[in-house]
Design a protein around this nucleic acid. Structure first.
Lengths: 336, 336
DNA sequence: TAGCCAAAATGAAACGATTCATTCAGGCAT
DNA sequence: ATGCCTGAATGAATCGTTTCATTTTGGCTA
């Protein structure tokens, strides 16, 4: 309650508040003797800076916001870890906001971050947030899109080429002799899903004998994957696909769980399965999962780096678009 | 840069700043006409509250801090999700701090949260933070320990009975006929590890013919588990344990990966394996993992609830210690 | 029409750290 | 002894919101 302020410290040390502030922020401007006295008073009283007051004066906070689609997805916790690492180098904290595929929560977090006057915003957007972000930028808050670009490329972004990833996955399935491929993923409002599907279509288009069907899910979770897998199981055996490309590893794991539930189907013999993201658990799945690897930690790290560069240069900054290339990882689920 | 303040809004709407504040915080005190005019001005100018100024006045922020040992562990993301849910009900945000088994980072987050004057702190402590937390509480910031109690029980806590969990796991292994059990876990500075081991010891003690050895790891991660698994593999076949109890699922998954690397060992026939936490991926492992389930989301939810109650009642609050009971989940890795 | 009352609106003070123009002290050269 | 210079210390002003004691307004009654 009775919070200790710089005033109290100043009084205790017999100096002015300006001097206390100097001890805190520019120690070199203060004579050693005085500094020691102030430090002693600080320790004595248990003084802790009030960040709100500091921010108010500075006009800007020392944290940056990261808005992701799903913290339960190890891909995003990896991104967050990378972001945190780079931010820590600058003494910045990362506020993590979890959208969970809800437009309302996305909006709420943007509001919160705007009110907090965060240093910058990293976002893997769900809805159309162009206007909001433009407003943020007008206020001087730089923004970097993670894993996504806007149409007009007016924001800096860090992404992975999902079309290429989709192509890699589908091409791999074709190359091991599969001809009836099912793409499991959704909702199709998510850009990543659309792009991965697009890549798959491109790869399949080169082979007239190969078909591609789409099994749409309402989320990118283990649960949704299990539902999709059960859908496949219910079909007559010769109506089933002989390969499944899941839009991410969580889905793939769900599909795998469902397919294994009855013993009749063998992965990869009857159905091959490939996921996306190459999360740590993919390698440990019932049948170790083939996947498309993304440099997740690096994505987070690079995004913050870009944000800081954009912040430093202000309006004159040329927006950058960094695109990483994904990589095919073959394991047992596609018959390694 | 040119940030819009209540002053600007007041000027534009032709009212005083006090009225603008009333529109924002106590709309019922303002006549409808005036309120509409103010709202229009707000929309017009794109005014967004400055949270720092608000906090400064209020003396307390609208977020609460959660410090966990490892965000990459799905158990903790579940706890975080539960905490977020309860916090959202009160319009509070959750700041997530990730310790990664580093005392320095734990201290840094506590500093940060203290400077931010957070509403409360939830912490799954690594080191001895009693003094720090006492100081926080003296300042009026309530604290709840997650998954841990201090010796003197002077803080509220939400935990799961880890000794009981350890007992459950070891007893299960004994009951399926295993006699040479190895406990994989560490570092032993972590209370959860100690307690789970203690429970295992108790269960084993009842059966003179069963032995319990300890393989200490330096972390609770998949990687550490893999290392432990390799250690076991290097031994002569009849020197190996016939069952492994891993202190958490990440370790268990790592152990499993290592054991599977050469084809010679079969889980559970040669070595049974049980983990702890029952994370979503446990059921999807190469060999679906038996585990000890904890109500992770509920833990987070309850912890925030307790925090809020403690905040409401102030010093008069009787500290509560909520303990959930863990549950055995049997799957294939112990020969379901 | 004067008087009264409740509702509405006002505006100055407060929160606590930082900044910066100004003052002060002490050392040195003339 | 005087003046000058530099490093150290000062303290009032500032950031933007909220609060609350005070004033104003308008409606109603006597």
């Amino acid at each position: 309650m009775a919070s200790i302020s710089v005033n109290d410290v100043a009084a205790a040390a017999g100096v002015s508040v300006g001097t206390v502030s100097n001890v805190l922020n520019r120690p070199e401007k203060v004579s050693p003797g005085t500094a020691a006295r102030v430090q002693a008073a600080i320790a004595d009283l248990g003084f802790v800076r009030n960040d709100a007051a500091r921010q108010l004066r500075a006009g800007r906070s020392r944290s940056l916001g990261l808005i992701v689609l799903d913290v339960a997805n190890p891909f995003f916790t990896d991104v967050a870890r990378g972001a945190e690492n780079r931010a820590a180098e600058e003494g910045l904290a990362v506020l993590l906001g979890n959208t969970d595929d809800s437009l309302a929560r996305e909006a709420a977090y943007l509001d919160l971050f705007e009110e907090q006057r965060v240093h910058g915003v990293l976002i893997s957007p769900l809805g159309d947030v162009g206007d909001r972000l433009t407003r943020l930028r007008a206020r001087g808050t730089p923004t970097v899109l993670v894993d996504r670009q806007t149409e007009d490329r007016s924001f800096s972004s860090v992404a992975v080429d999902d079309v290429a990833g989709g192509r890699l996955a589908a091409h791999h399935l074709v190359s091991i002799g599969k001809t009836r491929i099912a793409f499991v993923g959704g909702p199709i409002s998510i850009r990543q899903v659309v792009d991965r599907l697009k890549g798959a279509r491109e790869a399949v288009a080169k082979h007239p004998s190969v078909s591609l069907e789409i099994i749409e899910t309402d989320a990118l979770s283990v649960l949704a994957g299990r539902a999709a897998g059960e859908l496949v199981l219910e079909r007559a055996p010769d109506d089933r696909p002989d390969a499944i490309f899941a839009a991410n590893d969580l889905l793939a794991i769900g599909v795998l769980q469902a397919l294994n539930m009855r013993g009749e189907l063998h992965v990869p013999r009857n159905i091959a399965l490939i996921g996306y993201d190459d999360i740590a658990f993919a390698a440990a799945a019932v049948v170790p999962l083939s996947s498309i690897r993304q440099p997740s930690v690096l994505i987070g790290y690079t995004a913050v780096d870009l944000l800081l560069r954009e912040a430093a240069f202000g309006d004159t900054f040329e927006h950058e678009h960094i695109v990483f290339q994904p990589e095919l990882v073959v394991r047992e689920s596609t018959g390694a």
